[in-house]
């Protein structure tokens, strides 16, 4: 087979698998987001207009939002809006497209997620390597047990502690908000990102350690050892790379967790990102925005999972033909 055909076939396979899973999930996401807020008790129109509203203006808003239409018609309109405008309507408070509102704030949230990803990897990989290379030793036990403490620590509480220690007392980082300037925003993201990473590290350490142990026992490692390749080089060049693929998948799923944590921690650090938008919209019952945030977060997670899937397929040829094990284990 010529190299190009080979590549094209591979791309096609990855793409087909992706589409066969993405399409139903996308449909599911849209349906959930639509019904999510039809559960709201009370009249959203009155909720938005507040206590000074007359019945006429409430009725007018109901009509404007299409709340007076039959449910199926509302759903059709919702989908059409999604397809034509890529959003869930205009914010009832800001009178702006939810897509624009979210896009404006997304960089802040994504900045935190990005740093959280880096922090998580920087902590998890060395720990996993150390644990695996000291299998069943005291160090291994320590590394398996201690980080699980992070699972039981609420992100917001870690955030509070970090503020007190590293911002108020040591003044290494801003207490909150986002500074202006070239590097200042990144400095503002560090503490929130660390807070978010706490719970993401333990599962990654566990999985990576298990994968490393599997690979260490693999035949090719034995061969390499027999060939007197330095142990350090075996560990980093060969074992880690081979263990990376399954952990990459796990990490893809973890991004969803990091996003959720980021939205919560934004409140603690008063960072005006997507999370803050979500909480404000909940206070003001701005339901198109709540829907938009849920929708865009889900889409982002799906895209990340897909990307991880594709990257794994590229790294590890064995996966190209195999049935996907990505989203569903």
């Amino acid at each position: 087979m010529p190299p190009f055909r080979h590549f094209a076939v591979m791309v096609w396979r990855v793409l087909r698998r992706a589409l066969s899973r993405v399409v139903p999930v996308a449909v599911g996401v849209v349906v959930i987001v639509f019904f999510l807020l039809r559960l709201v008790p009370g009249d959203p129109a009155r909720a938005v207009l507040g206590d000074t509203a007359t019945q006429e203006s409430v009725d007018a808003l109901r009509a404007q939002l299409g709340l007076d239409l039959p449910l199926w018609k509302q759903f059709v309109d919702f989908v059409l809006q999604l397809v034509t405008r890529f959003d869930t309507g205009d914010s009832l408070v800001y009178h702006e497209s939810t897509r624009v509102l979210i896009a404006e704030r997304a960089p802040l949230s994504l900045g935190i997620v990005a740093i959280a990803v880096i922090v998580t990897l920087l902590v998890a990989i060395p720990l996993a390597v150390i644990a695996a290379s000291h299998k069943d030793g005291p160090l291994d036990h320590l590394i398996r047990v201690v980080p699980t403490v992070g699972l039981g620590m609420p992100t917001f509480w870690i955030g509070l502690l970090l503020i007190i220690v590293f911002a108020v007392t040591l003044k290494w980082f801003p207490v909150g908000g986002v500074g202006t300037g070239a590097l200042e925003p990144w400095r503002s993201f560090v503490l929130p990102a660390i807070a978010v990473s706490f719970a993401a590290v333990p599962p990654l350490v566990r999985s990576l350690r298990a994968q490393l142990l599997d690979v260490m026992d693999a035949d090719f490692v034995t061969t390499l050892r027999a060939a007197h390749i330095p142990e350090r080089r075996i560990q980093f060049r060969h074992i880690l790379r081979n263990a990376a693929v399954p952990s990459l998948n796990l990490f893809g799923v973890n991004v969803a967790y990091l996003i959720g944590g980021t939205l919560v921690v934004e409140k603690v650090f008063a960072i005006n990102g997507v999370g803050m938008l979500l909480f404000n919209s909940i206070s003001s019952r701005d339901f198109p925005v709540v829907q938009g945030v849920a929708l865009y977060c889900a889409i982002f997670v799906v895209v990340i999972t897909l990307a991880v899937d594709a990257i794994s397929a590229v790294i590890d040829p064995r996966l190209r033909a195999a049935p996907s094990h990505l989203v569903t284990a």
Partner: peptide, 13 residues
């Protein structure tokens, strides 16, 4: 597919 869909939403969201 339903599982995939629910999982696509970050838990806290």
């Amino acid at each position: 597919r339903v599982i995939d869909t629910v999982i696509a939403f970050p838990f806290y969201v």
